[in-house]
Write a protein that binds this DNA or RNA. Structure first.
Lengths: 102, 102
DNA sequence: ATAGTTACTTACATAAAGTAACCAACTTAC
DNA sequence: GTAAGTTGGTTACTTTATGTAAGTAACTAT
């Protein structure tokens, strides 16, 4: 074993290659959203979404804000770090449009 | 459920968010390589690498070439479609260097 | 009091990944 | 000629991740 790959790149890949993570971030690029909105637009189960949002919060990519309305509104949004993934997401979009069939 | 996400983008994410896929492609950007080289540089198990390379070949991203030398040499390389992922990989690299600690 | 909403969590089932041993084909060393 | 080494895998088994569905807490509306 002689891992020749940059550890930062490896960490980025570890984050982004978690199932659903990319789609969740992509979805949040269009603005702050609540749990159930992400759940249905991305198509991820609540169980996993909850897990992913916690991970992404810990990574400093997503911010969670509680609005004590009724019923309670909890808003998830991208931090600066999260927003900095936009060019990367645009590249994926570009590649998918150039090279993938539907 | 009202999936608002572009199906091409979703497919791209499905491919790229498979565990190890990104690292395998990144590794192949530096040129054609054999099975055991990828295995050790990426740190993936042979069982999964074998699976991923087949998937990537089916997607038209990776090409497999047999050189009947001794011992047999099998070379994996990126197709045009695979190489077209380079800008995306560079974006991940850039992001990881700008926003991640080691 | 009953039912509905949101944002979760829990328990259980299935799918994916890790680990390690094994195999085929061919070579070199003894 | 036979034992051991190399490459590129596969197979069997274990552990981890994800999917599914039901449950919970806090509050409102009827």
């Amino acid at each position: 074993m002689d891992k020749s790959i940059c550890p930062r790149f490896e960490k980025a890949m570890t984050i982004l290659s978690q199932r659903w993570t990319g789609l969740i971030i992509y979805q949040l690029l269009s603005g702050p959203q609540r749990f159930c909105t992400i759940e249905s637009s991305v198509g991820v189960s609540g169980r996993v979404l909850s897990e992913r949002l916690k991970d992404l919060e810990n990574e400093g990519i997503v911010r969670r804000e509680v609005h004590p309305e009724t019923p309670v509104r909890i808003e998830y949004s991208l931090t600066e770090k999260g927003k900095s993934l936009e060019p990367l997401m645009k590249e994926i979009e570009k590649w998918s449009q150039g090279w993938l069939e539907v």
